[in-house]
Every structure is written in structure tokens, then in C-alpha cells.
Design a protein around this nucleic acid. Sequence first.
DNA 1: GTTTGACTCTCCCCTAACGGGAGGCCGCAA
DNA 2: TTGCGGCCTCCCGTTAGGGGAGAGTCAAAC
Lengths: 268, 268
Amino acid sequence: MYQIGEFSKLGRVSVKALRYYDEIGLLAPAEVDQWTGYRYYSTEQLYQLHEIVALRQMGFSIEQIAAIVSGAGDTSLVEARLATLETEQRTVSDQLFRVRHYLRLKKEGYEMEYKVVVKEIPSCTVFSSRQKVADYTEMLSLIPAVGAKVAADNPQVSCCVPEYCCNVCHDTEYQDTNMDIEICQAVTTPGEPGDGYEFKTLPAVTVASVLHRGPYDGLGAAYAFAIDWVQTNGYQVAGDWREAFIDGIWNKDSEAEWLTELQLPITK
Amino acid sequence: MYQIGEFSKLGRVSVKALRYYDEIGLLAPAEVDQWTGYRYYSTEQLYQLHEIVALRQMGFSIEQIAAIVSGAGDTSLVEARLATLETEQRTVSDQLFRVRHYLRLKKEGYEMEYKVVVKEIPSCTVFSSRQKVADYTEMLSLIPAVGAKVAADNPQVSCCVPEYCCNVCHDTEYQDTNMDIEICQAVTTPGEPGDGYEFKTLPAVTVASVLHRGPYDGLGAAYAFAIDWVQTNGYQVAGDWREAFIDGIWNKDSEAEWLTELQLPITK
DNA sequence: GTTTGACTCTCCCCTAACGGGAGGCCGCAA
DNA sequence: TTGCGGCCTCCCGTTAGGGGAGAGTCAAAC
């Protein structure tokens, strides 16, 4: 019989952990002195502890270990652990990509103006108007015009809250002149198509998102950053880019306060 | 200005998380209504939140993020994160090896009698006696003899608590006859060498440990298991094997209760 | 004017697997 | 008798919020 301190050294497990295992019923001592409360362990417990430690080293939770050591023979928990480990491996790998990319740019002296977030954009109903525009100035003038026309034709249509107003860019690479864009505005219910616009459903996508602050002539740098990020982090661009308008001329006087979100659909 | 619900949808962050970020001072709303307590966020906060989410997706803790967004420009936290990620990657990889090894054996119908634990054995002072023995029976008779001789010659020498009594096996592969073994017993202080024994220091080692229950003729299977485990888990054997005696003929009548620990020193 | 339903607030308890420490008991050695 | 090391229980702390209770707020609908 060992005292808890000796037993803890034998099994390379802390005294605190042993008391915890006792408390939750995972590993009770062979004997507990009824008067002093002292725990006494035998080598039978050492054998059990060895198994517990082995399972802990595989990363099982205590609850899972309790299930495994009691109802042995079922591999489902182990298979679940395998699946969990595989996703953990992907997560760590993704994070490594990001951190290394960040450090590389920092080392090159780049000031990290842009940060990339991967997010899910749910599917949504929009009215849209696809047009060729000469530049961003022309585009900006079109948005309220389209909105006004739709509102006039479809008085029952209301915009989503919070708003989601974006361009879907149909050009195959970034350009800021003669662009093939589709102005979209998310609405709560579809309406009837009209002159120069229609209602459609934008698909749900996973995007790499970059926020750009300032006037639109800086969007090129943001795009370049986003595309580089997507490639060096092991993703591929998988769909038409979107530019979501958050702040702009309609609510901010100073161009420096304009806020636009680039959304590049991606897959691994 | 957005209410917390809208803002939470814009940033794809839960309301709970936003309130938490406010509470700990990481991201305060632009305005809080003094009477209702309602939080109102502006797009400036959206920009900050985007950065926070990007850093979270790199796996930084909230505390680290607070440090990064306040005192920007220092890469030490990012380098620390890189180091942490690299060890996490190794941990996950190790666990994957173990779980896959386990599942493979299970699928082959093997009953998992042995579990492997990787543990550190600290350096310790021992008296030792290296001998050629014909078999385990002969070895068993030698241990008490050596112990008695040392105790007689060195009355001030006392054994460690808990005990650590082991064979260091100098054979290059497992054999149960004509073995070249070194009987060792950990003591608290070194003594004077004597006839057929000496005092020495066993090095600290990292070992793969397997517990074997039962008589010594089953040790071969335990060795085979341990060696297979070491190889399929990407380790190499790096030193002389040890057999640590926990329970045996000296305290258990039934051979089935004997307990022996195989310790194979390993490196990655 | 009232009601309703969605939204928000604060406050409190919960997580996993122990670690740290306080305050007190037990047994042994000087 | 005193000290010391080991052990006990009890309580609080850790992360990054999640869940829910109970109450207040807001805007639209009736």
C-alpha cells in the first residue's frame, strides 16, 4: 500500500490529479482510512492509473476515459477521437499558415494594414442589376438609382437589417475601369423583376474577408493582399468576388472614413 | 450606429462574446445609453472587431489579442504563437500516431492488453551488479543476495521511497536465456563499491513504459508490443532497456499478480 | 392608448481538469 | 514539547464565453 505521495511519484501523476480522479470516481484508492481520510493505493490501482495515463496521452477527456475503461471493447469513442484529431490537425495547420504569412510580411517591413477573416456568408435574396460601368464613380451613382426604381416598382419589398449591399464582380481579375459588376441589395422577400433589375438568390459562400478603409482607388491594394493571402494559405478562389458597402459617400463626408469589405469566395 | 444584435450579425460574433469583450475592455461600444444600458456600435468598432476576429482565427488568446491591438508593432507575441503552434502540431501528430496504432490493432482483433505511456525517468543513484544469468529464476535469486551484501557493507545506505529496483538489460535484443543484465536498486546516497557491485548514477531518460502482469515468461510479448509501438509511433530506441520490478515473488504469492514495468528509452 | 413580440440589460451559475493556498489533522524525530 | 513533512477538506481561480432567469426597452401593430 502506498500513500498518495508515493503513488503519485510511481505513476508520474500529481497528487491533485489523483484526488480529482478519486472525487469523480475514475480511480478510487484501494482503501481510505475511515478516521484520517488518508488514501492508500495498491499496485492494482497503479495498473489502472497506467491505462488512464496512456489514454490521457492520446488526448481523451476524463469523461471519455471513464467510459472506455468501464465499458471496454467499443471502438466508437476512439474513432471519434481520431476524427477530432484530424480536424484539430487541420485547424493547427491553418493557423500555422496564417501566422507564418503574418510574420513573413512583417519581416519584409510590411505594415499590416489588412487582416483576413474567414467567414460564412449565408444565402440571401437580393435584387440585382448587372451592368458595365466605366469606373467606381459611375457605379456609385447607379446604386441609389437602382434602389429607387425597385422601391417604386415594389413597394412591399424591404431591405434586410443589417443592410447587405454589395457588388458581385464578374471580371476574372481586378480592374477599376470598364467593370462588369452586379449591384445587389439584400431584401427580406423577393419581388417582381423590372426594367434593368431582377430578384435572385445569392448562394451561401465561405469567403476570405478584408476590410478596406478609404476611397476606392485603394481597393486594388486590398485585392492584391487578399489574393496573396488566399494563395499562400492554401485556399483557392471559388466564385465571383463581392464588394460589400458599409460606409461610403451616402453617410460619410470624409473619404477616409469609407469602409468596404472585400469578400473572396474560397475553398480549401 | 448598430444595436448589439445587428453588430453581432455584421461581424459574425455572438452577442455574448461582444458583451464579454466590452466587460474585459477589449472592445467597448462607441456609445452606451446611460439610462437603458443599451450598447451602440459604429463601423469604427466593426473595423476593430474584424482585427480581433482575424487574430482569434490565428488562435491567439484574448489577452494576447488585447496586447497586440494596443501595443502593435511587436512581433514577439506572434513568434511565441508560432512556437506554441509548432508544439501543438507535434502533440496532435503524436496523438494521431497512437490512436491509429490502437485502432489498427483493434481492427486486427488484438485485445489491448498493453498500454504505452511515455514518461520521464529522472536521474538516480543506484548500486548495481552486472552479471550474466541463465534465466529469470536465477536473476530473481540474485537480487536479494546483492541487496543483502550491499546493506551489510554499507549500513548507512538506504533505498529510495518509493522503491525503484530494476534490471538494465545490456542485450541488444530481447532474450530470456543467458542474459547480460545489471541489477540496480535506487538509493538515497552513494556508498562504497564492494565485491561484485558498485554505485553509479543512472541517466535521466524518456521511456516508453509498458506494465506487464503475470509471470516472466510473458515478458517477451510485452517487449514485442513495446518495440512495435515505439517504431510505429515514430520513435527510436535510445538506450538500454530497463525492467522495473513492482510486485513479484517477494510480496505476492500468485504469479498472476506479479507486476513488472518495461522501460524502453526513446527519442523522436 | 395598449398590446405584443423582438430585443436588450444585468446577474448568476456552468464548463475541464486540475493548481494554489488556507487552515487543520497525523505521525515521527529531536 | 516542538518541529517538520505529509495528508486532509474546502474554497477560489483558470478560458472564453454559453445558458437562462427576470426585468426593462423599443417599435410596430391593433
